[in-house]
Amino acid sequence: MRPAARRRERRPPVPETLLSIENLSTVFELRGRSLFAKPVELKAVSDVSFTLDEGETLGIVGESGCGKSTLGRSLLRLIEPTAGRIVWQGRNLTELSDTEMRKARRDLSIIFQDPVASLDPRMNVGKIIEEPLKVAEPSLGRGERRRRVEKVMEEVGLAPQMINRYPHEFSGGQAQRIGIARAIVTEPKLIVCDEPVSALDVSIQAQIVNLLKSLKQRMGLTLIFISHDLSVVRLVSDRILVLYLGRIVEIGPRREVFQNPGHPYTRALLSAAPIPDPKIARSRARTALEGDPPSPINPPSGCAFRTRCPIARDVCAEAPPPLFTVGADHRAACLFWEEVRAEGTAVA
Rank of each mutant, 00 (worst) to 15 (best):
K43T: 10
A44S: 13
A44R: 02
V45R: 03
S46C: 10
D47M: 10
D47R: 01
V48H: 07
S49M: 01
S49Q: 13
S49F: 14
F50Q: 10
F50E: 05
T51W: 12
T51Q: 06
L52C: 03
L52N: 01
E54H: 12
E54W: 02
G55N: 00
T57A: 02
T57S: 04
T57L: 08
L58W: 00
G59L: 02
I60R: 06
I60V: 15
V61I: 13
V61E: 00
G62L: 06
G62P: 00
E63Y: 12
G65F: 00
G65R: 08
C66Q: 01
C66D: 07
G67M: 09
G67Q: 08
K68F: 11
K68T: 08
S69F: 10
T70H: 11
T70F: 11
G72R: 10
R73V: 08
R73E: 05
R73T: 12
R73I: 06
S74C: 12
L76M: 00
L76R: 02
L78W: 04
I79N: 11
I79L: 13
E80L: 07
E80I: 01
E80C: 04
E80G: 08
E80Y: 03
E80S: 15
E80K: 04
A83Y: 09
A83L: 05
A83I: 10
A83N: 11
G84R: 03
G84V: 13
G84W: 03
G84C: 14
R85T: 06
R85Q: 14
I86H: 13
I86A: 07
V87F: 06
V87N: 02
V87R: 00
V87P: 00
W88T: 05
W88L: 07
W88Y: 13
Q89A: 15
Q89K: 15
G90R: 02
G90C: 07
R91K: 15
R91D: 15
L93N: 09
L93T: 12
E95Q: 07
L96F: 13
S97K: 03
S97H: 05
D98P: 06
D98Q: 04
D98S: 11
T99S: 09
E100L: 03
E100F: 01
E100M: 00
M101P: 02
M101Y: 01
R102F: 15
R102D: 09
R102E: 15
R102Y: 15
R102V: 15
K103L: 15
K103R: 14
K103I: 04
A104N: 10
A104Q: 12
A104Y: 00
R105F: 05
R106S: 09
L108G: 01
L108Y: 14
L108V: 15
I111D: 02
F112Q: 05
D114A: 05
D114I: 02
D114K: 04
P115V: 09
V116P: 08
V116L: 14
V116G: 06
A117S: 04
S118R: 05
L119G: 14
L119S: 05
L119D: 10
D120V: 10
D120H: 08
P121S: 07
P121R: 05
M123A: 11
M123V: 04
N124I: 01
